[in-house]
Design a protein around this nucleic acid. Structure first.
Length: 342
DNA sequence: AAAGGGACCTGGCTGC
DNA sequence: TGCAGCCAGGTCCCTT
């Protein structure tokens, strides 16, 4: 699944390939990917068509493209989402096969006969595009873009499990006056992400404030580092890896931890993310923006996540799996001392 | 304030 | 082999 390092790799690709390009059409294959869009699919189409991308920004796992009219196209990849940039022949047609050079046939379609899009429910949505026979599996939304250099590009949301989604939103000022996120030229961010804290890769992150907030709470520290209002972008994988790296059990209360320990935890978590980004980033050099760019890193480098019952690479003890805050937590019983409470 | 649960989804897995 | 049911994951929303 796309974690913060992969989302950052995607952001860099979007910044490189889409900045300065204009959205020439909107193809909606599955309206469920737009469920967060205020006003529904037709508002999405109207808000995007003709807009030019001016920047690609990320905060945590939220990603957005700034538009020239002062709005943002926000994206979250959820569990299974990918944002792909296609160029040349591969971008041109609804077919997915290489060499398919047919022009896009469905631009900015909002069908009438099936009923107004505002009637669309999550479970019985007639697709806004009629001909589904040749589209790639799990392709939900496609935006053709032009300008800014070489020929047409297309931004595609491919999302198997539909936890991700797109929406065009207003911008609001940041609370601290710093840029909205990594890659942002302005102290603005989408209103829908205003509640999301900065992440560990954001130079504007106030680490001391994060440490203070963690240490002021009696909640489990694993829950705290996964609380997006404290620090964003840490999912279950990196939470477990960071806790193992810092030798802290996830059930420890924030109030039990000293400032150095919390700092060590943030460092360890950021370090794992940084290494994943380095790997995901290097394989990321073409038009094809691959949300699975760090798959190799995951396969080789995870210390604890998904490894309950196997041995700790540091001390050899058998890794232990349990549930913390409703999430699976794998830890080393020797390196990470479990508190007596909980 | 914190904790817990459900909803959202699909495909891979287990168990019959 | 076929099928039903469970599960994972992140975010949001609701209730206790």
């Amino acid at each position: 699944m796309p974690e913060l390092p992969e989302v950052e790799a995607v952001r860099r690709g979007l910044a490189r390939h889409l900045t300065g390009r204009r959205v020439t059409g909107v193809e909606v294959f599955d309206a469920r990917s737009l469920r967060r869009q205020e006003g529904g699919p037709e508002a999405f189409v109207a808000a995007l068509t003709g807009r030019t991308v001016t920047a690609a920004v990320r905060r945590g796992k939220f990603l957005w493209l700034l538009l020239d009219d002062g709005h943002a196209l926000t994206a979250h990849l959820g569990m299974s989402g990918q944002l792909l940039v296609r160029g040349g022949a591969a971008a041109a047609g609804p077919g997915d096969g290489p060499g398919d050079g047919a022009p896009a046939r469905f631009l900015a379609h909002v069908d009438g006969p099936e009923g107004p899009p505002s009637d669309l429910s999550a479970t019985r949505v007639p697709s806004l595009v009629r001909d589904l026979s040749t589209r790639p599996r799990h392709l939900r939304v496609r935006l053709p873009l032009k300008g800014g250099g070489a020929g047409t590009r297309a931004l595609e949301l491919v999302d198997q499990r539909l936890f991700g989604g797109l929406a065009v939103t207003d911008l609001v000022p940041t609370a601290d006056g710093a840029p909205g996120g990594l890659g942002s030229p302005s102290p603005l961010l989408p209103v829908t992400t205003a509640h999301v804290a900065r992440d560990l890769l954001d130079p504007s992150l106030d680490r001391r404030a994060v440490v203070a907030r963690v240490r002021s709470s009696r909640r489990a520290v694993k829950t705290l580092v996964m609380d997006q209002s404290i620090v964003s972008g840490v999912g279950n994988i990196y939470a477990d890896e960071g806790l193992w790296g810092a030798r802290v059990h996830g059930l420890r209360r924030g109030t039990e931890l000293g400032p150095r320990v919390v700092g060590r935890l943030l460092d360890a978590t950021a370090d794992v993310m940084g290494r994943a980004l380095a790997v995901g980033g290097t394989s990321f050099d073409s038009l094809y923006v691959d949300a699975d760019g760090a798959a190799g890193f995951f396969a080789r480098s995870l210390a604890v996540y998904g490894r309950a019952g196997r041995r700790c690479g540091r001390c050899g003890a058998v890794l232990r799996g349990e549930v913390v805050g409703g999430r699976s937590h794998v830890s080393c019983p020797r390196c990470q001392v479990r508190p007596r409470h909980g």
